[in-house]
Structure formats: structure tokens, C-alpha cells
């Protein structure tokens, strides 16, 4: 336990209500402490890597995750602690993964998946096909449907947020989610 003393007590009150290791390490890392940043990395990499892997693909994930953490290091000075560090990092990872600087603000994006990809998620009915591992099946979804599914059902974002992030109408986000879910039915572990 910490030694008591007004200095330490002030420290704890300055940072968070409790001693939050993320908040402490974020402050240290912002001033150049790479060891503190490594601790943050080790604590968060599994979650971030899984997010990126599911949004993109296995082979792109490592490189993108490295970029996420390098970007986090660069931007630490702007992290003011209004949100939990994990939440901030998560948002940053989504930005980097989608290949954009910010998800905030309405930007009319023209990078839509080709209409064919969006509309035809293969409907497999019956048949003795090998069932894919659920995560592999997610990877096989077309880009748009996969991103919506991961952000909504895996990560818990709402359609309004997802629509803004991906530059879609909310209705499109909902229909993409439905198609993804319908396609994934075949690959549940039974």
C-alpha cells in the first residue's frame, strides 16, 4: 500500500476517485515514460487487436494495431481524461481502422462498398458445408456488413453512432446488421 501523507492523497484525488492505473500510466506516458506506455499497451492490446482483427482481417491487424498505439502515443497530450483511457483508445482504434482521422462530424463519404457486396450476403440454406468458426465467419462478411456487425453486436455501439462513423444512413446500418446476423446463423456452434 502507499505510504500515507498529504502528497499521495492529493495525487489520488487529482487523478481519479480511485487509483486508476490507466489514468496514472497515461499521465506518465504523456510526459515521455515509455515504460508506463508499455503497461498501457499490455493491458489493452488484446481488446484492441481483437477489435481491429474483426473489423479488418487477421493479416492487416498487426500493422494497424501498431499504428493505433503509435498514434495514441502521439496524441496522449490531448487526452484530457474526460473519458476512461480504454474508451479513448478504443475510439482512436476505430478511427485508424476506418482510415480516417476523426469519426466526429458529418462527412459525406463516397467510399461505399460496391452495391453488389452490400446486398448479397450469401444465403446458405442447409447443405453439408463445413461450418466455419464463428470468428472466421465474421471475417468472411462483406466489409460494410462486417463493420456494422462488429461495432453493434460485438462492441455495443448504437446505430446512430455507427451511421456517423461509417458515413451511412441509420436505416442502412440497421439493414446491414440484419443481413450480417442472418448470414452468421449458419455458423453458430451447435
Amino acid at each position: 500500500m502507499t505510504r500515507t501523507g498529504t502528497g499521495v492523497a492529493t495525487l489520488q484525488r487529482d487523478l481519479t476517485d480511485r487509483t486508476d492505473p490507466d489514468a496514472v500510466d497515461a499521465t506518465l506516458a504523456a510526459s515521455g515514460d515509455a515504460h508506463a506506455f508499455e503497461r498501457l499497451y499490455r493491458r489493452h492490446v488484446a481488446r484492441i487487436h481483437s477489435l481491429v482483427r474483426r473489423m479488418l482481417s487477421d493479416e492487416e491487424a498487426d500493422e494497424t494495431v501498431q499504428d493505433v498505439f503509435v498514434r495514441a502515443w502521439q496524441k496522449l497530450g490531448t487526452f484530457r481524461g474526460e473519458a476512461a483511457f480504454g474508451t479513448w483508445l478504443h475510439r482512436l482504434a476505430i478511427n485508424v481502422t476506418l482510415g480516417q482521422r476523426e469519426t466526429l462530424g458529418i462527412r459525406r463519404k463516397r467510399f461505399l462498398d460496391s452495391p453488389a457486396a452490400l446486398e448479397t450476403v450469401p444465403a446458405r440454406r442447409g447443405g453439408p458445408e463445413t461450418r466455419l468458426d464463428f470468428e472466421k465467419a465474421i471475417e468472411r462478411l462483406p466489409d460494410g456488413a462486417r463493420q456494422v456487425f462488429v461495432l453493434h453486436d460485438v462492441e455495443g455501439y448504437r446505430h446512430e453512432e455507427i451511421a456517423e462513423m461509417l458515413g451511412l444512413a441509420t436505416g442502412t446500418s440497421k439493414s446491414q446488421l440484419h443481413r450480417a446476423r442472418m448470414a452468421l446463423r449458419q455458423h453458430l456452434d451447435r
Binding site: 500500500m1 502507499t2 502528497g7 499521495v8 495525487l11 496514472v24 499521465t27 506518465l28 510526459s31
Partner: peptide, 14 residues
């Protein structure tokens, strides 16, 4: 847990 005084931490942040 790091035993740092708040002053030291503040100094680091500056």
C-alpha cells in the same frame, strides 16, 4: 502502485 508525490507527477506532466 507507484509512490509518487503529486508534486512529482505534476512536474512530470509539465
Amino acid at each position: 502502485l507507484l509512490t509518487l508525490t503529486s508534486a512529482a507527477l505534476a512536474a512530470l506532466a509539465l
